[in-house]
Design a protein around this nucleic acid. Structure first.
Lengths: 107, 107
DNA sequence: CACATTCATAACTCGATGGTTATGAGAAAT
DNA sequence: ATTTCTCATAACCATCGAGTTATGAATGTG
């Protein structure tokens, strides 16, 4: 039972994969060939990385003729944002508590 | 030159490590012994994970007598939040462009 | 001092993972 | 029909990483 943040963190842990995702985010849809041209690794390696990203829901593929276009699915980052939010909420909560404490001590 | 988000993603990619960090975030400072008691793995394994988290700046350790207390450094998540923000900003930008386009088409 | 406790490090094992080359499937071009 | 192009998959290899046990260093305790 691999939870949702787990797949995301694992997929984005690899720098090559993150670079691919960033390119798709910043430059929009790209073919495998275009991605391979700048990735510095072989085409099969790129395809495998794209497969991992796809399984994590981070990218979407569209087949057109004999080439495949990949695009970023930024919505998939939501669980990641939620997670960091949950981890920070408690920091803020404690901060608020501290503020309250200081206020009460001040009176 | 491992960049900042890289260390963070890699550190948080492991579920055991993420669980440790979550515990420190939610329950506050803990000794290695306390963490080991619930981690389901050996003490050396926990120590190693804490070492990785520490190197990523996600936790801070405080030595007191013969035990070490670890606590979460939630501020370290900032680069991660920034990164997701950068990846999403473009999504919003495109969304805005689309909205603009639709408005212009409407007139 | 001798012993116990707490943690970190060393040495090792083993499965996961990222890379490669080879090849096949499908679509386009000649 | 044959060839070419684009991508995915298979098979393999090397490295990495997470776990283990064993042990040492440092601190407290009898």
């Amino acid at each position: 039972m691999t939870s949702s943040p787990d797949l995301l963190f694992r997929a984005l842990a690899d720098p090559t994969r993150r670079a691919l995702f960033e390119r798709l985010c910043l430059e929009g849809e790209q073919t495998v060939g275009a991605l391979t041209a700048e990735a510095g690794i072989s085409q099969p390696a790129v395809s495998k990385h794209l497969g991992v990203l796809k399984q994590a829901g981070l990218v979407h593929d569209r087949h057109e003729g004999r080439q495949t276009h990949y695009s970023a699915q930024q919505r998939a980052l939501a669980p990641l944002v939620d997670w960091t939010g949950r981890m920070n909420r408690f920091w803020e909560a404690r901060f608020d508590d501290l503020e309250d404490l200081l206020k009460r001590m001040d009176q």
